Amino acid sequence: MGVHDAPAWLVPAFTRNVLEAGGTAPAEDIRRTADDLLERWTRPDRHFHNLRHLVDVLARVDELDEEAHHPELVRLAAWFHGAVFDSADRKAYANRGGEDEAASAVLAREQLMALGVPERHAQRVADLVSALVRHSPDPTDIDCAVLCDADLAMLATEPQRYKAYLNDVRAEYSHLPVEDYVRARVRILHKLLARPSLFVSPLAQAWEEPARQNVSAELQRLEKELAKLEAAAAAEPSASGSADADA
């Protein structure tokens, strides 16, 4: 899905949200910023964290927006939350994924203020983006909860779509050796399941059970795969030793 494949409503929606947040820039400047963001979301190294993911997050925000105090700021944060992306090894091994929330937050503040959005609103969007580093929002901060829940909602999709999501995530980190990727993914899944609740906002509670079922099934499969990989690695030295002895 490239920039030209973007749904027709995306740029007008971004423009409306910027204006609702207090932006004063001409419509042309707002559209130019939207186009820049779309170009970021459609770069070829993005297999999951791409335009489809942005649209999905915005759609989930729509499902939860009656709970939000400032839904326009939540939607702007959704636009910026993965704007800066890099699936390089150092980020993957840090278990942060490719989304650079810190850099994306800085970009959000700079670009929104350049569009005339008041500093307090631009900073609030940046803070919402930064909160996605931990995905553990304060339950009293409902806007943050809505954004975090919308971003994690893919965990609760039907099994076939969840499988497609896993294939896309693996494609983003295809440069990682299988065992390294599986180990990192297992750690992430254990952390998710250790949470008292994956979702915080009241309307998102319906996603809790299907998400846990998907995550648990994936963890079970990956732990079996990891055991096989470890067994194969342990067998290699002895096999090599036998070959040397035979020689």
Results as ranks from 00 to 15, higher is better:
115 L>P: 04
71 P>K: 02
101 E>Q: 14
191 K>F: 14
38 L>D: 02
36 D>Q: 13
141 D>R: 10
25 A>T: 01
157 T>D: 09
231 A>S: 12
175 H>N: 07
44 P>T: 00
3 V>K: 02
90 R>T: 11
201 S>W: 05
83 A>V: 15
195 R>N: 09
124 R>L: 13
68 A>Q: 09
159 P>K: 08
121 H>P: 04
92 A>R: 00
6 A>F: 05
142 I>V: 14
2 G>E: 03
72 E>K: 00
219 L>S: 03
97 G>Y: 01
163 K>I: 07
155 L>W: 04
129 V>D: 09
10 L>S: 04
204 A>K: 11
208 E>T: 12
55 V>G: 10
67 E>S: 07
31 R>M: 09
194 A>E: 09
241 G>E: 15
207 W>P: 02
8 A>L: 09
183 R>Y: 05
3 V>A: 08
104 S>M: 11
172 E>R: 07
98 G>F: 07
21 A>L: 10
14 F>S: 03
93 Y>W: 14
100 D>E: 10
186 V>Y: 01
174 S>F: 12
29 D>Q: 14
55 V>F: 03
232 A>E: 13
213 Q>I: 05
88 A>P: 07
76 L>N: 10
156 A>T: 00
228 K>I: 01
26 P>F: 04
236 E>D: 14
158 E>C: 00
183 R>G: 03
190 H>G: 08
112 L>S: 08
130 S>G: 15
197 S>T: 09
171 A>Y: 03
186 V>F: 02
14 F>D: 02
65 D>P: 03
120 R>T: 15
238 S>T: 03
217 A>I: 06
105 A>G: 13
51 L>E: 02
82 G>E: 05
229 L>E: 06
3 V>C: 05
128 L>G: 10
1 M>G: 14
154 M>S: 09
47 H>K: 11
5 D>F: 01
117 V>M: 05
145 A>R: 04
127 D>T: 14
78 A>F: 05
126 A>C: 08
5 D>G: 02
77 A>G: 11
155 L>M: 11
15 T>Y: 01
19 L>K: 05
40 R>E: 14
113 M>V: 05
23 G>F: 06
127 D>N: 15
2 G>S: 06
115 L>H: 00
84 V>A: 11
27 A>L: 03
115 L>C: 01
92 A>N: 02
166 L>G: 13
243 A>G: 14
54 L>C: 07
76 L>F: 10
1 M>I: 02
